[in-house]
Write a protein that binds this DNA or RNA. Sequence first.
DNA 1: GCCGTTTTCGGCCCGACTGTTTTCAGTCG
Length: 572
Amino acid sequence: MGADMRLVELLEELSLLLELSGENPFKAQAYARAARTLVEHEIDVHRAVAEGTLRQLPGIGPALEEAITEYVRTGTITLYEHLQQQVPEGLLELTQLPNVGPKRARQLYEQLGIASVDALEQACREHRVATVKGFGVKTEQALMEAVQQWKHSRFRLHLHTALREVQRWRERILALPDVTSVVVVGTLRRYAEIIEEISLLVTTPFPERLSKALRKELPEAVAETGTRFAARGERGVRIWFELAPVEVAGWMLFQGTGSEAFVAAIEAELRARGFQPAPHGLLKDGEVVPLRTEEELFALLGLPVVPPELREGGEIVAIARQQGLPRLVSRADFCGMLHVHSTWSDGKASIRQMALAAKELGYRYIAICDHSPSAYYAGGLSYERLKQQHAEIDRLNAEDLGIYILKGTEVDILPDGSLDYPDETLEQLELVVASVHSHFKQSRHEMTSRLVRALEHPAVHILGHATGRLLLSRPPYEVDIEAVLATALRLGKIVELNAQPYRLDVSWEYLQRWRDQGLHIAINPDAHSAAELEYTDLGIALARKALFPPDQVVNTLSLEEFRQFCRRHTQQ
DNA sequence: GCCGTTTTCGGCCCGACTGTTTTCAGTCG
């Protein structure tokens, strides 16, 4: 069992509240660090309290032990309750804005009485923010932009958060009587990168009865119709529930999944065959056609079932009709887990733990790619530490863990496009992923030349998260990504589809344009913990959206093939 | 608040960047 997430969230918020109330920042950090420790060590706090083992954990001393013990006994922490009374609620919201930390939030509150993002927006409009000491006109403008960005991303979720949210609601709804199934539909079923609302299709033999039960279970939900309800979930995201009789569940699933263009294309084919599509059922001669599954619907048209992630547009219907669905990369093709971190730099798990976790997931080899020296904040490895790491990898491989560990690096691309290790060091590595982690504000021309130069380095195999975007928080840096992808293709270099749900970089739309040209990609979790290895699956879904076949995804290569591929593509 | 072959007090991942200053504070990765 993992850590108690409510406690973890409580400790994190407590840390922020301490900073906001002007406490010693190191004291505040101690609470945040304790929260991380509980997660990383997957601590069952109830057991740890019972056994009195909390103090053995790094960063947990007498005060944290007492706070956690109190939480286990009472469900809360007095200090937290106390601070919550003292610190205005909106200050936490303010710290979510980029460039607003606890200090500035406090200043804005004390000087201007600002205690919410809305109040900050108003103050910016009235140019009151620029009058505060330490703030100026530029800061005011930047804050105004940050407010707009925040309002835009409010109520939106990253893919993994949305999937977790679905899990929670599914369990809750499945516990009700008369529920046959709860299936996610909408953009989430299609694996959109950002989820604006979650839609769940609830099938039942008795829609009216379930409607009543649902109303009772979710009193806060708003009923749009007798069979359609809206509630609010994680971070205020809207959750739709649609009740459907089992006889037409397949039709409703198809309708709910979309996209509009895809539904229209299928409906056009149905009309041509004498069917009349309607929102709540497919009709033929005025009678509802029973369609319990999507398979039955596609079979009506003599089409293969189009996987949900491919349904962004209508063109796929014509493709499926004329030449069948292309063979797409899938989880079953995967052998290699590339680009993962370990405790040698900023990862949370040891090399052994990461390797064994990857083996459990069915992988045959794993490339440990920790950071290089310039990424000091991430504990980047000096040459000496890199050598030590290699010795450990040799020892682990000698143990024969049932998965082969490759010696890799995620080397920083420095501002001028050179790499953060000397050539002799890079030559000793089996896999070189090169990524940008600093100096994001270069001009488009500088950034493009920087990435091109990195790709031209003979030791580089993979270009990591090439646009630098962080979904919902940071736009990509200025770069001519098309020129970069063209260079990768020309040199036979691999472009990463970074599967971190915050990144999903390079985006599938860009990759799709270069797929036909023969671009090779690597789908990498960039995992910092064993749990994050599973992000790979999100990346696979997005590669499928871009219609990548297995042979253009290097993770599908066997170990020997992968090594050959790397050798071939770095010999100039 | 935590920690300790720098050890019971005084540090705490360090440097870049930005916008504000006129020598630095706050934030970020």
